[in-house]
Design a protein around this nucleic acid. Structure first.
Lengths: 247, 247
DNA sequence: CGTCACTTTGAACATCTTCAAAGCACGTGG
DNA sequence: CCACGTGCTTTGAAGATGTTCAAAGTGACG
């Protein structure tokens, strides 16, 4: 049995929302400094290890989560079907609002893809915030509409694009966040997740992912070394992201 | 060029919301009779022919729509990719709320699958309603969360179920609405759409749909005659809806 | 420093798409 | 009321894409 005492890697950390590098981003941007400070005092935050669950499907919703640093993913498991990672959340992004709206039961789970620090705002605190700040409610409603649009888009891409194109798009979107211009204009990137997570995100099998990655490497589109990925020619990656057949 | 004058099949109809068979359903159920009456006077409604567009992607949102009778579908078209029908809307269901939240630009289109009567509430009227009825806003937010959950579910099923299972599920869900118990307990059903629409809904090709349908027929799971479908043994249809391999 | 999960490899196979062409059906206009 | 055309439906054959299963590496982490 796991000990109740948190290990050195899993510790509560006292983050100040006002000092959060992502405080202006998205939903929370509508709060004034004093509200931010109140939020800061009321929330809790802690580190998560790679692969750790943030919340689990069919359990009571523990609140709303906001990523201070790291990467998480929201997963959906249909009865008798393998799990799908339906969306990723990166630094500064909030997730878990759907569960809040639904009244507190989780219809998804969430897990951490790389070591992360994540803040949690419990339901009662949230309720107070929403009462006092109608604009915050609006923001989160917009976020819900945005998530819906993105999921529809993912559905269309899953339907019509081969794994190769979907993988190219995933790499592009990751590079947008964390790509760094290497020597001689080579774009470089550290993948924030395992191959298995990438497979779950692309809705394919780990074996297929490996082979597709190697195919792209032998085509000179990417150069891989563990979680390190180099993109010699972004334009060619962009080509690979397009549909090949388009009936 | 098409004539500007509406044809006899496309006419404005004066529907009373209070008399609508679906008035208690879902979102609008929170309105009292007098608000219903006001809504009734402010909305417009008309008939649509099979295949007709209700609203189009990348255009200004013409308002919120509610189906009095018939069937419609929301479609998403990604650049350079075939269109996907991301959800269906049947009698009594409201659609187009995402566009309203987003501030009035459509990121989807909607088309009618079978001859329908659809009501439209324009944005200014909606804004007034939402101001006066916070619970209505809540209802539509819940609806957004529900749509998100359903789309995630569709994504997972598209990822892991073969066409045969997805088709079985579509037929089951249609039968739930409009199935009638035939003689000797045979479930019977009239499909409210073309094969092409079914293919777009299942994210496959019309050819594949035809062949899959025939395979199920020769297995005795369904009996087809045009848009007429008989289900001799619902239990066997339910089996066909399950995954076969489950790795 | 051992363990367990992740990753990779290989070969056989299932599923679905693609392309081309013929048949059909419905609504339109004469 | 019938003829016509356009789009939907079906059929066939070939081939691409991805899965499955088994087993051997590999590596990260505690």
């Amino acid at each position: 049995m796991r000990r109740a005492i948190v290990s050195p890697q899993v510790q509560a950390v006292g983050l100040q929302c006002l000092a959060c590098p992502t405080r202006r981003s998205a939903e929370w941007g509508v709060l004034r400094d004093r509200d931010m400070q109140a939020l800061s005092a009321a929330k809790s935050s802690r580190t998560y290890r790679k692969g750790e669950m943030v919340y689990a499907q069919d359990q009571a919703c523990p609140g709303l989560f906001c990523i201070a640093s790291g990467t998480a993913a929201v997963a959906r498991t249909e009865p008798r079907l393998p799990t799908v990672l339906v969306r990723m959340a990166q630094s500064g992004e909030t997730f878990g609002y759907g569960n809040v709206v639904r009244g507190g039961m989780c219809d998804t789970s969430a897990k951490v893809l790389e070591p992360s620090v994540i803040c949690r705002i419990e339901l009662p605190i949230l309720a107070t915030l929403f009462d006092q700040h109608p604009r915050l409610v609006q923001r989160f409603q917009s976020r819900l509409a945005e998530d819906l649009a993105r999921t529809e888009s993912a559905l269309a891409q899953l339907a019509w694009l081969p794994v190769r194109s979907r993988l190219a798009r995933l790499i592009m979107s990751l590079a947008e966040y964390r790509g760094t211009a290497n020597g001689r204009g080579v774009l470089s990137l550290t993948l924030p997740m395992t191959r298995r997570d990438m497979a779950d995100l692309l809705c394919t099998r780990p074996e297929t992912l490996t082979r597709t990655m190697q195919a792209m490497e032998s085509d000179g589109i990417v150069r891989c070394n563990g979680h390190q990925v180099d993109i010699p020619d972004p334009e060619r990656l962009h080509e690979a992201a397009q549909a090949q057949h388009l009936g």
